[in-house]
C-alpha cells in the first residue's frame, strides 16, 4: 500500500477521553488519547509537579523493552512541553496506540514480540502533541519532529528525510530530531555511525522540516525554495492548520 505523502490528522476522535488525535504520515498511523490532570497513584505522585505517563502500545504483539525505551524518550520530551508545575500531585496520562506501521514487503516480520524501531518516534510525538492540544492541557510550546537517514551511495553520503523501512535498514545512520515551536532542540536520538559534519547536516535538514514556516517566521521564502528537491512537508504549518480547523469547529457559535 502506498504510504501517505501528506500528513493527516483528526482531533478528538475518541469521545470518552479528555483529548485524542489520530495521526498518519509516511505509513504510520497512531491514535493517541490524553486524560488529565487526574489523580495520580501514590508511587507516581510528585509534590510539585504533574507526572506525565506515556504508554506506547504496538499494533500487534506485546510490548517489550523497545516500547519501554520509546516511552521514556517521549516522556522526558513531553514533560518539557507540558506545564507540569500547574498540576502538582496529579497525573497526565498519554496512551499512544500504533495502528499501522509501514511494512517491508520484502521481509516477513516476526510479530509476536513487537519491535517498534525508533523511526516511529516522530509519528508518536506528533500524535501526543496533537492529543495534548485537543485535551487543552496547558503547554509551554508545541513541537514538531522529523526523521532523517544518512544513506551512503557510491562513497558520497546523502540525506533522506522520512525514509522507508528499507532505506532505514540500508542507512548508515538514522536520526530523529524534534524542535519546539520556539525553534529549540527538544529531542535528538541517533543510531549508527556518523561524523560531526553529517550530524550538522542532519540537524539543518531536520530543522528546516520542523521549523520552516518561512512566512510567519519572517525568513525569506526563497531560502526554502533554494534548497533542491523534496523538503518534506511543512510540519509546523500542518499543526497550525489542523488546530485551526478544530478551533473553528469548537467555536462555531461565535
Amino acid at each position: 500500500m502506498p504510504a501517505t505523502r501528506e500528513p493527516e490528522a483528526d482531533l478528538s476522535v475518541l469521545p470518552k477521553a479528555d483529548g485524542s488525535a489520530r495521526y498518519s504520515y509516511a505509513g504510520y498511523t497512531v491514535t493517541g488519547s490524553v486524560n488529565g490532570p487526574i489523580e495520580a497513584q501514590r508511587r507516581d505522585e510528585h509534590a510539585y509537579e504533574a507526572h506525565v505517563d506515556v504508554i506506547v502500545r504496538p499494533a500487534a504483539g506485546v510490548g517489550g523493552t523497545r516500547e519501554r525505551h520509546l516511552e521514556t524518550t517521549l516522556q522526558s520530551s513531553l514533560t518539557q512541553l507540558i506545564l507540569v508545575k500547574n498540576f502538582p500531585r496529579s497525573l497526565i496520562q498519554i496512551v499512544l496506540q500504533v495502528e499501522s506501521a509501514p511494512e517491508n514487503d520484502y521481509v516477513n516480520t516476526k510479530l509476536v514480540q513487537a519491535s517498534l524501531n525508533f523511526a516511529i518516534i516522530p509519528a508518536l510525538l506528533q500524535t501526543a502533541v496533537l492529543a495534548l492540544l485537543s485535551a487543552a492541557v496547558p503547554m509551554r510550546a508545541t513541537a514538531t519532529s522529523a526523521i532523517v537517514a544518512v544513506v551512503s551511495q557510491d562513497g558520497a553520503s546523502e540525506l533522506v528525510a522520512d525514509p522507508s523501512p528499507r532505506e532505514v535498514e540500508a542507512a548508515q545512520s538514522v536520526h530523529v530530531l524534534a524542535f519546539t515551536s520556539q525553534d529549540e532542540l527538544l529531542l535528538a536520538e541517533s543510531e549508527g555511525d556518523f561524523t560531526v559534519k553529517e550530524w550538522d547536516d542532519v540537524y539543518d535538514t531536520a530543522k528546516r522540516i520542523c521549523c520552516q514556516s518561512g512566512a510567519t517566521k519572517g525568513e525569506s521564502i526563497e531560502m526554502v525554495l533554494d534548497e533542491k528537491g523534496d523538503n518534506g512537508p511543512d510540519m509546523r504549518q500542518f499543526l497550525r492548520s489542523t488546530l485551526e480547523t478544530k478551533v473553528v469547529a469548537d467555536l462555531y457559535w461565535k
Binding site: M1, A60, E99, N108, L111
Partner: peptide
C-alpha cells in the same frame, strides 16, 4: 478495514474497537 490485511475498526455508537491480525511461522 485498514490498508493492510486483517485490520478491522469497529464503532458501535461511541464504543470503538480495533482488531489486528498477524501471523508468523513457529
Amino acid at each position: 478495514f485498514g490498508d493492510e490485511y486483517g485490520v478491522a475498526d469497529v464503532t458501535l455508537g461511541k464504543t470503538r474497537v480495533l482488531a489486528k491480525t498477524s501471523a508468523e511461522v513457529t
